[in-house]
């Protein structure tokens, strides 16, 4: 996501904010200097996506809150390593959040457990569940529209890995496709999403 000042159009993803979004990139750079007020402003920009993403992955409300707090404190602690020229602040934060939440979900639940929670070994079922609880609630029309340009297997591969924390091998098992296929579809799907969203 381009949250830099140089963006010509309002950044994507700031639903309900037609006015230019506050500049997360500049705030994060300020945070790196130890500016607590900047952190408080940045907090408002990032906490909902972070919490929402962590919640998708962990499901458990208390755990999600705990991991969200860890992630936000890590943003503060490691902001000094953020390189604005390498990408947007939101991407940086969400990359961190995703990694932490995936760490946690893998540490606490085996793939089999996660699958059992979904209540079915069927990939289609797992996907329905994901798309209902997540995609169905996407407010960003653009993301929804772009996801719909993916093939079904591309979409499944992206959703199972990103929102559910499966490895691509686990995802392959879930959808009953060869791992090499899912690996490729995952990349193709993300590339298609990137091109459709016009990011990167």
């Amino acid at each position: 996501m381009d949250d830099g000042p140089q963006s010509a159009e309002p950044p994507l993803g700031w639903a309900g904010q037609p006015q230019p979004a506050p500049d997360a990139r500049a705030l994060l750079v300020e945070v790196a200097k130890g500016n607590e007020a900047a952190f408080e402003q940045l907090y408002e920009l990032i906490v909902r996506p972070v919490f929402g993403l962590v919640r998708r992955l962990l499901r458990d409300a208390a755990q999600s809150e705990e991991v969200t707090q860890e992630v936000l404190v890590e943003v503060w602690r490691t902001a000094t390593h953020y390189r604005p020229e390498k990408g947007g602040a939101m991407t940086w934060v969400l990359t961190l959040a995703h990694r932490r939440a995936v760490d946690r979900v893998r540490a606490e639940q085996s793939a089999a457990d996660r699958e059992a929670k979904v209540g079915s070994r069927s990939g289609a079922r797992a996907f329905d569940e994901v798309s209902e609880s997540v995609l169905g609630r996407l407010e960003q029309r653009q993301v929804r529209r772009c996801m719909s340009t993916l093939t079904e297997l591309q979409r499944e591969s992206v959703l199972l890995t990103y929102y559910r924390g499966y490895t691509y091998r686990e995802a392959a098992e879930l959808v009953g496709s060869p791992t090499a296929t899912v690996k490729t579809r995952l990349r193709d799907g993300l590339i298609r999403l990137r091109d459709c969203l016009g990011v990167g």
């Binding site: 993803g13 700031w14 959040a97 996407l138 992206v158 929102y163 993300l190 590339i191 999403l193």
Partner: peptide, 18 residues
Amino acid sequence: RELREAAGMLGVAAAEEP
């Protein structure tokens, strides 16, 4: 980097009130 940015949009889309 680019694919993370794209995936990040899925994260943004999942935003929820903490």
